[in-house]
Simulated scan of single mutants.
Amino acid sequence: MADKQISLPAKLINGGIAGLIGVTCVFPIDLAKTRLQNQQNGSRLYSSMSDCLIKTIRSDGYFGMYRGAAVNLTLVTPEKAIKLAANDFFRHMLSKDGQKLTLLKEMLAGCGAGTCQVIVTTPMEMLKIQLQDAGRIAAQKKLMSEVINSSSTGMTASEAQGPQSAIQISRQLLKEKGIAGLYKGLGATLLRDVPFSIVYFPLFANLNKLGQKDPDTKAPFYVSFLAGCAAGSTAAVAVNPCDVIKTRLQSLQRGAQEDTYAGISDCIRKIYRNEGPTAFLKGAYCRALVIAPLFGIAQVVYFFGIGEFLLGLLPQKHD
């Protein structure tokens, strides 16, 4: 029988390559998403994604759109690798004798993948958000310098010094709060990533099947790409309220007169009361634009089997 065993190292390589390519392509949109989600009604600097990117280029140059990309590119390889490989692993474990998985089992596999990935996702997002949002905070300080200088806004010493690097932020958090400092927002990250994976993986698998001529052949790469885009954008918009909550909770710096939050329920209550229910959809179209190509690219790389090729993996090793 054709041995349909999965090779974990190959899947990890595929996920890593996919993550690097995808993040490089969509990082500026992700930066705009973070800044749009973090701005509150009293301190709106950007009216849209394009307005945010134009202002970022004007103030910081082209590479200002890639602020925080280094930490993302460093950690996205293990993050994407864990997510894709864990889903594959759980699907393999849940399928009995190669039988077709039920929708419930597909959702369970997605749930397992989402839970595993937060080990890397939480610190990665935590550091990335500080770096991405530093430009918004700096721009707000310029516009409201008199207010900020004449009132107590709860700025820390690190905020007054200006933007920090990911290493500086990591050291400071580890020194002040230990490893828990890097895992601030873990609950909100789980709240976003587990439902995302529960929606994404079964939806992708079923859309991708539409392009398969028979169960034993792969769908064409363009079908995998389109299925990844469609499933990714659908799941991204579905969990956007959780992403807004996560972004707010993980932001260490605040602009003048912006709310601080004690936890998930406090964050939900304050956003709803001060900004209305539509605030939970902030950055939704940016997130869809980020996730669609990210997962489309990921699935194409994954299905081309670059990892298997690099490792010289067999189908035909019969000794």
Score class of each variant (00 low, 15 high):
Ala231Glu: 00
Val300Phe: 06
Lys209Asn: 15
Lys100Gln: 12
Gly211Ile: 04
Arg287Leu: 13
Leu84Arg: 02
Ser151His: 13
Asp60Arg: 09
Val118Gln: 13
Pro202Asp: 01
Asp3Trp: 10
Lys141Ile: 09
Ala238His: 05
Gly15Asn: 12
Ser43Met: 08
Ala86Leu: 14
Ile82Asp: 01
Lys209Thr: 14
Pro28Phe: 06
Arg254Leu: 08
Thr247Lys: 10
Ile198Pro: 04
Gly162Glu: 06
Phe295Tyr: 10
Met93Pro: 04
Cys111Pro: 12
Cys267Gly: 13
Phe90Met: 12
Leu173Ser: 01
Arg35Trp: 07
Ala298Val: 03
Asp60Gly: 03
Lys142Ser: 15
Thr77Ser: 11
Ala279Glu: 04
Ala134Trp: 10
Val194Asp: 11
Ile179Ala: 15
Ala205Met: 09
Ser165Ala: 00
Asp30His: 06
Leu186Val: 05
Lys128Ala: 12
Ile148Ser: 11
Gln168Tyr: 00
Ala230Pro: 00
Pro28Trp: 01
Ser170Phe: 05
Ile271Asn: 01
Phe27Ala: 01
Tyr183Ser: 07
Val199Glu: 00
Gly211Trp: 04
Asp60Gln: 08
Lys282Asn: 08
Ala219Pro: 12
Gly135Cys: 09
Cys286Gln: 05
Thr74Phe: 09
Thr156Phe: 01
Gln39Ser: 07
Asp214Ile: 13
Ala32Leu: 05
Leu226His: 11
Glu176Met: 03
Ile6Tyr: 15
Val118Trp: 11
Gly178Ile: 10
Leu252Pro: 03
Gly22Tyr: 01
Leu207Ala: 06
Thr56His: 03
Asn206Thr: 07
Ala32Asp: 07
Gln37Glu: 03
Leu210Cys: 14
Val199Ile: 15
Arg171Met: 05
Asp319Lys: 07
Gln172Thr: 12
Arg273Tyr: 15
Gln168Arg: 02
Gln39Phe: 03
Arg58Val: 02
Ser158Met: 10
Leu131His: 09
Lys209Asp: 14
Pro195Asp: 11
Ser170Cys: 08
Ile54Ser: 05
Gln316Asn: 10
Leu53Ser: 04
Gln299Ser: 12
Asp88Trp: 04
Gly283Ser: 13
Ala32Trp: 04
Ile297Met: 08
Glu308Asp: 12
Leu289Cys: 12
Gln250Lys: 01
Ile245Gln: 00
Val23Lys: 06
Gln172Tyr: 08
Thr189Ala: 11
Asn38Trp: 02
Gly263Arg: 10
Leu131Pro: 01
Ser170Leu: 07
Ile297Cys: 03
Phe204Asp: 04
Leu186Thr: 12
Gln37Trp: 02
Lys213Met: 14
Pro202Val: 00
Gly178Ala: 06
Ser7Phe: 14
Leu210Val: 13
Pro293Asp: 02
Cys229Ile: 11
